[in-house]
Each structure stands twice: as structure tokens, then as C-alpha cells.
Computed example of a mutant assay.
Amino acid sequence: MNHQPSTLNHAPAPRTITIRDRPFHWGQRTYLMGVLNVTPDSFSDGGLFDRPESALAQARHLIASGADILDIGGQSTRPGATEVPLDEERDRVVPIIQALRRDRGCNLPISVDTNRSQVAKAAIEAGADLVNDVSGGTADPEMLSVVSELKVPFVLMHMRGTPQTMQQLTDYGDLIGEISALFARQIASAIAAGIPRHQIILDPGIGFAKTYDHNLTLLRELCAFRSFGLPLLVGPSRKSFIGRILERSDPKQRVWGTAATCCAAIAAGADIIRVHDIPEMHDVCRVADAIYRP
């Protein structure tokens, strides 16, 4: 089956984007997005960094280890996660972003991981630089217009349903084709809302409304999404399909399985890898880049 999306509005975006005075040259090397969950219930690190002191210490560790972007989330999106009140999510992320911006050692771009426009707006006003929306702009009808007003990059991820329902919505006739169709619709909606095309980053959503086999297919066929001419973000870190392969129930024991998925993603053209284990994946990306980006 032909998975190539139509060419309408698919002219290649500029290959360089500047975020907080840092140039990102898509295609030249792999960039690392370090995960900082300030939540009590995330699947891998819930409760570890939900206090300001521990969150700041982890942020400094990620920066020192080679992260290019910090991704701060105040609401778990693991399968079955319960939605928290908007004020609670905002109150988790905004103080951490403010504290990081007061810290001289934190001059990296900061991403806010949220599907709520009000949280996105508060986070950007506090000092964040881009919005990472697991719903791809579908959960909050105001999200795309707010991102346009904020004039920041937008990570558009594929997901069906919500974290509570997504694993019951995994029936695809054509996995790559259906993800591509959603991307095409949401890219068009984002552009119509005023988001410049070159400010959009695509994420196929490994683990979000995907089965074990779907996740492996996405890694094998990631290059199909290159036809959009936009940077690709992949977030395989410590996920359950890796645990199934390795027979390891503890997410923290999936570091080298994550490394293998990162290599596969880089070989297929990923531009950003979203991971928890920055020191190890920094080395993985350097070697993979030497092989696949000569």
C-alpha cells in the first residue's frame, strides 16, 4: 500500500530553526530532548522529581549530560492515567520553569509537555520556548491559535483518544497511512491558525494508541513521514514494548533496549530523540550519527 501523503503543502521546511538563540540544523545531527516529569504518577519516574529541589537537580544533570532541550510535563500521559485539574498541572510546571530560568546554568530551550492551551500559555510566559502536545492540537480547540499567538514551535504528535482510552483505540487498517492522514489534517489546521510551517515538528506517538506490533512497525517505517519535509521527533524511552522484548518489567532496566530503538530511529531519519537517560543516549546518538549522517 502506498503510504506517501499527498504533496499539497508538503514543500520542505527550512532546515534550520532557532529556539532560544540556539540553531537546530535538522539533518546534521540528532538532538536530545531530556524528559523531566514533575508528576507523582508518570510510568517511569513518577514522584522522583515532583519537588522543586529534585526537579532542578535533575534538570542540571540532564543539561550536563548533553540534553539539547528540556521537556517538562505536569500531567502523566501513561496508559490509563487520570487527568489532573488544569490549575494543578499549571502549578506543577510553571514554578519549575521559572526556577530554571533564574538558574544561570540553564540556558537550554524548554519544552512544555501539555495538551491544554492555558497551561501552554502560562509555561511560555514563564520562560518555556516550545509546546509539545501529545494530542497534536486535537484535545483543546484553542491550542493551535494560542501557539500561533505565542509564536513558538509546536510538536504535533499522533494519538487517538485520551490516555484513559487510547489503548482501546488501536484498530488500524493502515497504520502509517492513517497517521499520515492525521498529520496532514493537523498540519493544515496549524497553518490555518497561523503557525508557520517551519515551526512544526512531527511525532508519530510510539506507545500512544499503539500495540506492540505497531510500535515496531513505526520504527521500521519511520522514514515514510520524511515526505512531509518536517523534523521528526521520536519518543521510545523505556516503553513497555521494550520491556516485553527484554522481559523486564522495571522501566529503569530498559536503558539499552531504548538505545537500540534510538539507533533504529536515527537510521530512519529522526531529528530529535526524547529520552530519560541522557548520558547513555548522548553516546548512542554520537555513534549513530557518525554512521548514518556522514
Score class of each variant (00 low, 15 high):
residue 8 L to K: 05
residue 161 G to L: 02
residue 161 G to P: 02
residue 269 G to P: 12
residue 34 G to P: 10
residue 184 A to L: 05
residue 20 R to F: 11
residue 164 Q to P: 12
residue 20 R to P: 07
residue 229 G to K: 05
residue 105 G to E: 11
residue 66 G to N: 06
residue 156 L to S: 04
residue 71 D to P: 02
residue 39 T to V: 08
residue 208 F to D: 06
residue 284 V to D: 09
residue 158 H to L: 00
residue 279 P to R: 01
residue 168 Q to T: 10
residue 31 Y to E: 12
residue 290 A to H: 09
residue 9 N to G: 02
residue 111 S to Y: 04
residue 248 R to Y: 00
residue 54 S to W: 00
residue 108 L to K: 11
residue 23 P to C: 03
residue 281 M to R: 03
residue 3 H to L: 06
residue 284 V to T: 15
residue 97 I to G: 05
residue 21 D to E: 15
residue 22 R to S: 14
residue 52 P to N: 02
residue 96 I to N: 03
residue 118 Q to K: 13
residue 269 G to L: 08
residue 147 V to G: 07
residue 242 I to G: 04
residue 108 L to P: 13
residue 180 S to M: 08
residue 231 P to F: 00
residue 267 A to K: 14
residue 232 L to M: 11
residue 165 T to I: 01
residue 17 I to G: 08
residue 104 R to H: 06
residue 30 T to V: 11
residue 207 G to D: 14
residue 128 A to V: 09
residue 59 A to W: 07
residue 121 K to D: 15
residue 266 I to K: 05
residue 288 A to P: 09
residue 115 N to Y: 15
residue 156 L to V: 01
residue 256 W to N: 08
residue 116 R to W: 07
residue 72 I to A: 11
residue 205 G to A: 13
residue 13 A to D: 04
residue 292 Y to Q: 06
residue 273 I to Y: 02
residue 227 S to L: 12
residue 11 A to F: 07
residue 161 G to H: 04
residue 48 L to P: 00
residue 104 R to K: 09
residue 39 T to H: 09
residue 213 D to V: 08
residue 183 F to Y: 13
residue 30 T to Y: 06
residue 228 F to H: 06
residue 69 I to Y: 01
residue 138 T to R: 15
residue 233 L to I: 06
residue 220 R to T: 11
residue 64 A to P: 05
residue 155 V to I: 15
residue 208 F to G: 02
residue 273 I to T: 12
residue 217 T to W: 00
residue 52 P to A: 04
residue 283 D to Q: 14
residue 272 I to S: 08
residue 171 D to N: 11
residue 248 R to P: 14
residue 90 R to H: 09
residue 30 T to N: 13
residue 141 P to S: 10
residue 74 G to Q: 06
residue 88 E to G: 06
residue 131 V to Y: 02
residue 18 T to V: 15
residue 259 A to W: 01
residue 65 S to N: 04
residue 101 R to M: 08
residue 115 N to W: 15
residue 238 R to P: 13
residue 40 P to S: 00
residue 217 T to C: 11
residue 257 G to L: 12
residue 238 R to I: 10
residue 163 P to Q: 05
residue 176 I to N: 12
residue 216 L to D: 10
residue 286 R to Y: 01
residue 81 A to D: 08
residue 30 T to A: 13
residue 168 Q to L: 03
residue 125 E to P: 04
residue 115 N to P: 10
residue 140 D to L: 10
residue 147 V to P: 08
residue 213 D to A: 15
residue 100 L to Y: 04
residue 200 I to H: 01
residue 161 G to K: 00
